[in-house]
Amino acid sequence: MKIIISNNGTPFYEQVKEALITAIITGDLKEDEILPSIRSLAKDLRISVLTIKKAYDELEKEGYIITKQGKGSFVSLQNLELIKELKQQEIEKYLTKIIEIAKLYNISEEEIIDLIKYLFRSDKNE
């Protein structure tokens, strides 16, 4: 698992959250896998315990993890399914708008699909 904290001005807790979400989505952290304890993560990243706690609390609220008293925090993929669904709905919304614009300016379905393929590929190359 990779967690990089940068001094780019984003609050640390947000960065930790993002890094953990990425780990969960990419499968670095598997379902039901236990997360590092708040204190040990704080020590390893050299950040305040409260900052890490905030990140964990928000992750729990948003359904990515479940915290069991005395046992620790675990990845919760059930909610991930729900999140994936929501994200798909979000993508659907964006795509609908894109298709509207395409139709308006006579851009063909093929061109759109090619564009999507190109963008996916260039993302991978990065």
């Binding site: 704080a42 020590k43 050299r46 315990v49």
Partner: peptide, 12 residues
């Protein structure tokens, strides 16, 4: 030294 303190704080 800071790392020492962080180690110390592993105990809640």
């Amino acid at each position: 030294i800071l790392d020492l303190f962080l180690e110390y704080m592993q105990n809640p």
